[in-house]
Amino acid sequence: MLTTKRVSGGHLTTRLMTNYRSVLLIEDDEVDVLNVRRAFRKRGFTQELNLAKDGIEALSMLENTTTGLPDLILLDLNMPRMGGFEFLKKLKESPFAGLDVYVMSTSSEDTDKDLALELGASGYIIKPLYTDQFADELAQILG
């Protein structure tokens, strides 16, 4: 059932994906958005970073894009209107099903991680308290 891209302890153990050019961050929490932006700035990630506040906005952006689809989606789980799990389900049924999605969540529950991977996520990051640790994890994905 599970994909081969297993993660453990919040650290990615899969093969590193490189050459992402454009990233879509789906996140409602301002501080978390800030956290990602700071990591981009501090680690010098060059990818284009777009933002959606929830699943609905993200789907609509994908459908109506004029500048092209993102290579990577960073997805929060708890969001108003449409949360991460529902977005994954919708995405699977959409024309954009092949997109790489990494889930970033506060939850350290195995059940959440297992469900996310089962719904097609490529990886699962537990949002840590320390910003540096978070930046490290992003760097693993973005190179």
Binding site: L34, T106, E109, L129
Partner: peptide, 21 residues
Amino acid sequence: AQIVSHDLKSPLRAIHNLSDW
């Protein structure tokens, strides 16, 4: 317990992040 814990964790982490910054 699950919901409360998750919902409590987010702002907590935000406080931690913000004090870092």
